[in-house]
């Protein structure tokens, strides 16, 4: 091996990478909020007393958990406009694919967290006159979320990395920009090395932040 590394062409295109990073972050934040928010709603749906709601929530989870995100993005982008009169851009197709998949996974995490809270907590809250919703909001979820922060962090990291799938519909994010640079300069090794490094540099501090959050929430132990 006597490959001569040359990062100059990559760094000359830093602005293209910056645009890509902005696109990645934008997609990540939207998918994180939608995926985790919808996941909670689906988790509550699975616990509902209403049978159709329960059934729909389960069907949602099983459908989106057991189909590849890549296929979903492609399907929303190319197939949905055929059966419905809606044009979907790359951004929206990626949001749908990644968010719905993440919602399915995080719904299972929330459900496990909620179930892990002792029934006595529900009873104590109901016994001072709190409604089911108040109990959930004030007593159950704060404890459940504390327990599932590690699992949710994994989900968040997964969502961040899944954003690269959006390049399949040419959404402008890091990988898409990398491909472009690599094809113009014939330097895939350097480009993809830099892309991987950028992901690591952005993700690692975020993960450290959730560790700190975990410690902060554990102060009542």
């Amino acid at each position: 091996m006597n490959y001569i590394w040359n990062f100059q062409d990559v760094f000359d295109n830093w602005w293209a990478l910056a645009i890509g990073a902005a696109g990645t972050l934008r997609l990540f934040v939207v998918c994180l909020v939608l995926g985790m928010g919808l996941g909670l709603i689906i988790a509550l749906g699975k616990r509902s007393r209403n049978r159709p709601v329960r059934w729909l929530s389960t069907a949602f989870v099983e459908f989106f958990r057991n189909t590849p995100v890549l296929v979903q993005i492609l399907w929303f982008y190319y197939a949905l406009p055929i059966i419905a009169p809606i044009e979907i851009g790359p951004f929206l197709a990626a949001i749908l694919g990644i968010s719905l998949n993440s919602a399915a996974y995080s719904a299972e995490i929330y459900r496990g967290g909620i179930q892990s809270i002792e029934p006595g907590q529900w009873e104590a809250a109901r016994a001072i006159g709190m409604s089911g919703l108040q109990t959930l909001r004030r007593v159950i979820l704060p404890q459940a979320i504390r327990r599932i922060i590690p699992a949710l962090t994994n989900r968040g990291v997964e969502i961040f990395k899944m954003t690269t799938l959006a390049s399949v519909v040419a959404y402008v994010e890091l990988l898409q920009q990398g491909k472009l640079i690599a094809s113009l300069n014939y330097n895939p090794l350097e480009v993809y090395t830099v892309i991987a490094a950028i992901f690591l540099i952005i993700l690692y501090p975020i993960v450290r932040l959730t560790y700190a959050l975990e410690r902060h929430l554990a102060r009542s132990d």
Binding site: E118, G120, Q121, E123, A124, A125, A127, V139, P142, Q143, R146, L217, S220, D221
Partner: peptide, 11 residues
């Protein structure tokens, strides 16, 4: 309750 059931995340 017998088991107190205090809310552990609140003072």
């Amino acid at each position: 309750f017998q088991q107190f059931n205090l809310f552990p995340h609140m003072t």
